[in-house]
Computed example of a mutant assay.
Amino acid sequence: MSSSMRVLELVHFGDADTAFATRERPRPTPGPGQLLVRVLATSVNPLDLQTRRGDYRDQLALPAVIGNDVSGVVVETGPGADEFQAGDEVWYLTPIFAGRGTYAEFHVVDQALVARKPARLSHVEAAGLALVGVTVWEALVERAGVRAGERVLVHGGAGGVGSVAIQLASALGAEVVTTARARDHEFVTGLGADTAIDFSAGDYVPRVRALGGVDVVLDTVGGDTLSRSPEILADRGRVVSIVDIPDPQNLLAAWGVNATYHFVFVSPGREKLAALGRLVDLGKLRPVIGAVLPLSEVAQAHALLEGSAGGGRRRPRGKIAIAVGEPPLPR
């Protein structure tokens, strides 16, 4: 095995077309309790876009490898890493800003964060589910505590997070309402949404009120979602946001409705991946992969997620995956 590996390094904060460079770097060696994983697939998330733009420049020294999703194969184990062996297919989410990103051919990770890849998922699919799946689990299960029979509003149901959130909320026994453009309504109802509202055709609030309001709001889009949620929440309703909002919003409207607000910044964990894997095995959860690009086209993947890709290509539904060690699927 070669002692080097190919990586896509973030060398400048700013636009995608000038931010990255392909480099050869030494292949890492696993330490105590660690695994060396051959990365077969990773993915691009909004967190990556924010990092590339420089939103978290205080957390990151350049040049750096970014990215947080991995699906791949164990190739070497460090001392005491006895839960896995070479050849095991695994998936995981890395700690945010840990300094070891996943836009690379190999990656070192603590075995405590790693789970065995669900057999029903390809490596591209598993990489597309890791971060968004754990995020949605934290939002709907750990924070909102969604219960069967409740009504949940998922903002942005056709996106990477929203498409998983619809499926998880439905699996939990909730009635699911989602906002999506009219062209995506058949898609989101196919994922399990009971009601789809075209947010581009007018104010969504009256439509949700006509349903009787909701118990939980999952904000994946930002804007004025936080300040408007009390208009549609039932008493003791919960709002969970995963959006980094630069400007504070007036939450006084929440006074009198006993609303609880949660702000989620995802943290990795094997138990969450295992729970998601069980839902995958039961056929209740599957990531939506809207596009797959090779590692060399990370910049194009960022542009596609931002909606700024050329050639008339619009932002795809679901996730954008990066095939590192296996051929990309047809686009």
Rank of each mutant, 00 (worst) to 15 (best):
107 H>Y: 09
145 G>L: 02
130 A>I: 01
109 V>F: 04
96 I>W: 15
89 E>F: 07
86 A>N: 11
113 L>P: 02
107 H>Q: 13
142 E>A: 12
91 W>V: 07
121 L>G: 01
99 G>Q: 08
115 A>V: 01
142 E>I: 01
85 Q>S: 15
143 R>D: 06
110 D>F: 01
115 A>M: 03
107 H>A: 12
104 A>C: 03
87 G>M: 08
142 E>Y: 01
131 L>P: 11
120 R>V: 11
97 F>L: 11
93 L>C: 13
100 R>K: 14
89 E>P: 03
129 L>N: 00
130 A>T: 14
81 A>P: 06
101 G>Y: 14
131 L>V: 12
77 T>F: 03
80 G>C: 02
138 E>L: 12
91 W>R: 00
141 V>N: 05
82 D>M: 04
114 V>T: 05
136 V>H: 11
111 Q>P: 05
121 L>D: 10
102 T>H: 09
111 Q>H: 09
133 G>Y: 06
118 P>D: 04
121 L>S: 07
131 L>G: 03
145 G>F: 08
91 W>Y: 14
125 E>N: 05
123 H>P: 00
111 Q>G: 09
138 E>T: 13
78 G>S: 09
98 A>Q: 13
85 Q>F: 02
112 A>M: 03
79 P>S: 15
79 P>H: 08
124 V>I: 15
116 R>M: 11
90 V>S: 06
125 E>P: 08
84 F>N: 01
118 P>A: 02
87 G>R: 05
122 S>R: 05
93 L>M: 15
129 L>V: 03
137 W>F: 14
144 A>P: 01
77 T>Y: 06
144 A>S: 03
109 V>I: 14
114 V>K: 01
127 A>R: 07
140 L>G: 07
112 A>G: 12
139 A>T: 08
118 P>S: 00
113 L>W: 00
139 A>F: 08
86 A>P: 13
114 V>Y: 08
96 I>Y: 11
116 R>F: 14
